[in-house]
Computed example of a mutant assay.
Amino acid sequence: MLRFRISKYDPRLRDNQGRYLKPEWTSISDIGRTFAGEVLTAEAYLKVEDAYVVAIRDFLSACQIDLVRVTDLETRADLSSDCDRLTLAARGVSLSDVQALREGALIPVETLEPVLRAALRELIWFRLSGRDGGYVHFGYDYYVYFGCEIDPGEVTLTEPPADLFREAFTSPYA
């Protein structure tokens, strides 16, 4: 019964209803825009994306999940635009990685990185499921939800990478 979410949003900056109060970027499409006086660069975006990939791998490893199933796959209608090719280009994500993904596909965790990045970049959406009720769900605004049916005392979770926060939370996609 382990349930939580990872985000780049500091929980201390939420109001009583859980709304985040600081202006923040929420998508790869925000690269070039200014937030709190700083322009979001591709390098800054990729640093955060890298941290999410590490957090997802760490969770799957802690729950001893080495194979995941893709469910509820949604792909953007046109992945061939110039903008989408540029979005795919960084950190080894290719159009063929995204186009090859199929509903129900079983993916070894060690080969999961390109599709994780495509999901974080909003090119695709899906849910991942694994053994012991394990799941990874991608939400709006750069939230990622995790869970498994293993007793929390039996799982050793590493701290999320710097600049990410873990909060007890049940996925709205469960």
Rank of each mutant, 00 (worst) to 15 (best):
M1A: 05
L2K: 00
R3V: 02
F4P: 00
Y9W: 13
D10Q: 09
R12G: 07
L13M: 13
R14I: 03
D15T: 06
G18Q: 03
Y20L: 05
E24Y: 13
W25Q: 05
S27T: 15
S27M: 09
D30I: 15
D30K: 14
I31D: 04
R33Q: 14
G37C: 14
E38A: 15
L40H: 07
L40V: 09
T41Q: 04
T41F: 09
A42V: 12
E43N: 05
L46W: 08
K47L: 13
E49W: 06
D50E: 09
D50M: 00
D50P: 00
Y52R: 02
Y52W: 05
V53N: 03
V54I: 13
I56R: 04
R57F: 14
D58W: 09
F59W: 04
F59K: 01
S61Q: 11
A62F: 10
A62E: 01
A62P: 10
C63N: 04
C63Y: 03
V68K: 05
L73Q: 08
E74S: 15
T75Q: 13
T75H: 08
R76W: 04
A77H: 13
D78L: 12
L79S: 03
S80K: 14
S80M: 13
D82L: 14
C83A: 12
R85Y: 10
L86H: 03
L88E: 03
A89K: 12
A90H: 09
A90G: 05
R91I: 05
G92L: 11
V93N: 00
V93F: 07
V98S: 03
Q99V: 14
Q99F: 10
Q99C: 14
A100R: 13
A100G: 13
E103D: 14
E103N: 12
A105P: 06
A105L: 13
I107G: 06
P108N: 06
E110H: 15
T111N: 10
L112D: 02
E113P: 10
V115T: 14
L116K: 05
L120E: 01
R121V: 07
E122K: 08
E122Y: 13
L123A: 05
I124Q: 00
W125K: 10
F126M: 11
S129K: 07
S129Y: 10
R131F: 00
R131P: 02
H137A: 07
H137W: 09
H137R: 04
G139P: 11
D141V: 00
Y142D: 09
Y143T: 04
Y145S: 01
Y145V: 02
I150W: 04
G153W: 06
V155E: 00
V155S: 01
T156S: 10
T156E: 10
T158H: 07
P160S: 01
P160M: 03
L164G: 04
R166Y: 07
E167T: 08
A168M: 13
F169P: 00
S171Y: 02
S171N: 01
P172T: 02
P172D: 02
Y173I: 03
Y173N: 00
Y173R: 04
A174Y: 07
A174W: 11
